[in-house]
C-alpha cells in the first residue's frame, strides 16, 4: 500500500478541481485519505493538524488508562473496594468514550474542511473535564473513607 503510485497527496488549497480527474478511489476502504468526497482536498497542513489532534486525544485516553492501571492493578490502596472500582472503571470508561469519539471527530472535521464549512462543535472536552473532576472527587473520597 505504501508504494502505490496512485497515492493521493494534498493539493494546494487553491486547487479545487482535483477530484474531477477520475482518480481511482474505489479500492480505499475508508473512502479517501482524508474524509472522502464530496468537496475538495483541504490544505495538507490542516489534514496533518487534524491527525495530530486525534493523536493527542488518544494520548489523553492512554493517560487515563495509566491511571486506571495504577488504581485497579498496580498500587496497593486501602480504599473501600467500591470506591477503588468506581475510580478505575470511570477512568477506563472515559478512555473508551474518547477512543470511540476521536476517529469520528477526525472524520467529521475532515469532511467539514473538505466542504469549507465551519468545524463542528465537540462535547468531548466538556465530557473529559467533568469526568476527570468527578474522578478527582472520588479519589478524595477514597482517601478519607476506607
Amino acid at each position: 500500500m505504501a508504494g502505490r503510485p496512485t497515492t493521493e497527496g494534498a493539493p494546494d488549497i487553491a486547487d479545487h478541481t482535483r477530484h474531477a480527474d477520475g482518480t481511482d478511489r474505489a479500492d480505499r476502504a475508508a473512502g479517501a485519505d482524508s474524509g472522502g468526497p464530496p468537496g475538495s482536498e483541504p490544505d495538507y497542513r490542516f489534514t496533518l493538524a487534524n491527525e495530530r489532534t486525534f493523536l493527542a486525544w488518544i494520548r489523553t485516553a492512554l493517560a487515563l488508562i495509566a491511571g486506571a492501571v495504577a488504581v485497579l492493578h498496580l498500587v496497593p490502596l486501602d480504599w473501600h473496594t467500591g470506591v477503588r472500582l468506581a475510580v478505575g472503571f470511570s477512568l477506563t470508561g472515559l478512555a473508551v468514550v474518547i477512543t470511540v469519539y476521536a476517529p469520528l471527530r477526525w472524520i467529521r472535521v475532515q469532511k467539514a474542511m473538505r466542504r469549507d464549512q465551519p468545524l463542528p462543535m465537540s462535547a468531548l472536552p466538556v465530557i473529559t473535564a467533568v469526568g476527570v473532576a468527578l474522578v478527582c472527587a472520588a479519589v478524595l473520597l477514597g482517601n478519607y473513607w476506607s
Partner: peptide, 24 residues
Amino acid sequence: NPPAPVARPWALVLLSAATAALAL
C-alpha cells in the same frame, strides 16, 4: 505534496481500537 494524513485512515481506527481494547 506531503502525505496527508501521515498514516492511512485505517491506522487511526486501528489505534483507537487498540487503545479501547487496552482499557477494556
